[in-house]
């Protein structure tokens, strides 16, 4: 097993390597990294949930080529993002900026957290008060009344007081 483990781990982690690879050359390491970042963070417009790096669709290949061209032209990250958003909308961004349209998307996790916290509180409170207000049945009531009247409960009744 110990000898197999590295191989198994390799299998597990090699899934991420199944990405489209284009034979692009970059003038610098920084540019290559920026390209890599863009294709990881931008969504293929034709696919429902795949980034440009992971998609084999022709439109994704076109956009990767376009990204490389923009990088080659020396455009800034901001300019490149704006260029893509102007054509494909914010749909293309996996990390969209916070605005009116994306507010729900960004706030939903916090909203769920609040809902969960409220639910938890309500349940905890109900459990505590629930224990206090449990109704007594007839026998218990009789026992309480005896105690309140200062008499010894019937169970101990045979012992002299």
């Amino acid at each position: 097993m110990r000898r197999l483990l590295p191989g198994l781990l390799l299998l597990v982690f090699s899934l991420g390597a199944r990405a489209a690879i284009d034979p692009y050359e970059f003038s610098s390491e920084v540019e290559r990294q920026r390209y890599q970042h863009f294709i990881e963070e931008m969504r293929c417009p034709k696919c429902q949930n795949q980034n440009l790096a992971g998609s084999d669709s022709p439109i994704a290949a076109d956009l990767r080529r376009e990204l490389r061209r923009l990088l080659n032209d020396g455009r800034s990250d901001r300019e490149i993002t704006d260029y893509m958003v102007a054509r494909y909308g914010q749909f293309i961004l996996y990390d969209p900026p916070f605005d009116k349209k994306t507010a729900l998307l960004w706030l939903a996790p916090a909203l769920f957290l609040v809902c969960g916290a409220v639910a938890l509180l309500v349940i905890a409170r109900r459990r505590r008060t629930g224990a206090e207000t449990t109704a007594l049945d007839a026998d218990e009531r009789a026992l309480v009344e005896q105690l309140l009247a200062g008499r010894t409960p019937r169970a101990d009744g045979e012992r002299p007081s």
């Binding site: 439109i59 054509r87 494909y88």
Partner: peptide, 11 residues
């Protein structure tokens, strides 16, 4: 496909 790109065509 340049005009297609400017139009935001996906197919």
């Amino acid at each position: 496909g340049t005009l297609g790109l400017d139009l935001g065509v996906t197919g």
